[in-house]
Simulated scan of single mutants.
Amino acid sequence: MKRTLGNLERALFAYAQMRGLRTLRTGDLTVALGISCTQESKLFTRLSKGRMIAQVRRGLYLIPQRLPLGGTWSPSEILALNTLIGEQKGRYQICGPNAFNRYGYDEQVPNRVYAYNNRMFGERMVGPIQLTLIKVADKRLGATEESVTPDGEQGVYSSRARTLLDGVYDWSRFGSLPRAYEWIRTDLKKNRVSERELVRVTLRYGDVGTIRRMGYLLERESADAMLLRKLERTLKPTRSLIPWIPSKPKRGVINRRWGVVDNECP
Score class of each variant (00 low, 15 high):
Phe121Lys: 15
Gly104Asn: 04
Met125Arg: 15
Leu60Ile: 09
Ala115Tyr: 07
Lys89Ala: 13
Glu123Trp: 12
Arg51Gly: 02
Asn118Leu: 07
Lys49Ser: 10
Gly122His: 11
Ile134Asp: 12
Arg112Asp: 05
Gln39Pro: 02
Asn111His: 11
Ile129Val: 15
Ser74Asn: 08
Tyr116Arg: 04
Val109Phe: 06
Cys37Lys: 15
Pro110Ser: 10
Ser41Glu: 08
Ile134Lys: 11
Ile78Cys: 04
Tyr103Thr: 06
Glu87Gln: 13
Gly70Thr: 06
Gln93Val: 00
Gly70Ile: 06
Glu77Asp: 14
Gln55Met: 13
Pro97Leu: 12
Ser41Arg: 15
Ile94Val: 12
Tyr61Glu: 03
Asp138Pro: 05
Ala54Pro: 04
Leu131His: 05
Ala99Ile: 05
Asn98Trp: 05
Leu133Thr: 11
Gln55Tyr: 01
Ile129Glu: 05
Ala80Tyr: 05
Phe44Lys: 08
Gln39Cys: 09
Gly86Asp: 06
Arg51Trp: 04
Asn111Gly: 10
Gln65Phe: 08
Leu84Cys: 11
Arg66Asn: 07
Cys37Trp: 15
Arg124Met: 12
Lys139Asn: 11
Val136Leu: 13
Gln130Tyr: 09
Leu79Arg: 14
Leu43His: 03
Gly96Met: 09
Asn118Thr: 04
Gln88Phe: 05
Gly50Tyr: 02
Ile35Gly: 10
Arg57Cys: 05
Pro68Arg: 10
Gly96Cys: 09
Lys42Phe: 12
Val113Lys: 13
Tyr103Asp: 09
Ile129Asn: 03
Asn118His: 13
Asn82Cys: 09
Gly104Leu: 04
Leu67Tyr: 07
Pro110Glu: 08
Thr72Gln: 14
Ile35Ser: 11
Met52Lys: 15
Gly90Asp: 14
Leu60Trp: 01
Asp106Arg: 12
Cys37Met: 14
Gly96Arg: 03
Phe100Gln: 10
Thr132Trp: 08
Ala80Thr: 04
Pro64Val: 05
Thr83Cys: 04
Asp138Ile: 04
Leu81Ile: 02
Pro64Asn: 07
Thr38Pro: 00
Gly122Asn: 12
Tyr116Ile: 00
Phe100Ser: 04
Gly86Gln: 06
Ala115Ser: 15
Leu47Arg: 06
Trp73Thr: 01
Gly90Leu: 08
Arg91Glu: 15
Ser76Val: 01
Leu47His: 05
Arg51Asp: 06
Lys135Ser: 13
Gln130Arg: 15
Gln55Ala: 14
Asn111Cys: 01
Gly71Leu: 04
Val56Gln: 00
Tyr105Val: 00
Cys95Phe: 01
Ala54Gln: 06
Val56Glu: 02
Pro110Trp: 04
Glu87Ser: 14
Arg46Phe: 06
Gly104Cys: 02
Val113Leu: 15
Ile78Arg: 02
Pro128Asn: 13
Gly71Met: 06
Leu84Phe: 09
Asn117Gln: 13
Asn101Lys: 05
Leu43Val: 01
Val113Thr: 15
Lys49Trp: 07
Val113Ala: 12
Arg102Gly: 01
Ser74Tyr: 06
Tyr92Phe: 11
Pro128Cys: 01
Arg124Phe: 15
Trp73Pro: 03
Val56Phe: 01
Lys139Ala: 12
Glu77Trp: 07
Leu62Tyr: 04
Val136Ser: 10
Gly96Ser: 10
Gln65Leu: 11
Ile129Ser: 02
Glu107Cys: 02
Arg46Glu: 12
Val126Leu: 10
Arg91Trp: 13
Leu47Met: 06
Ser41Gln: 13
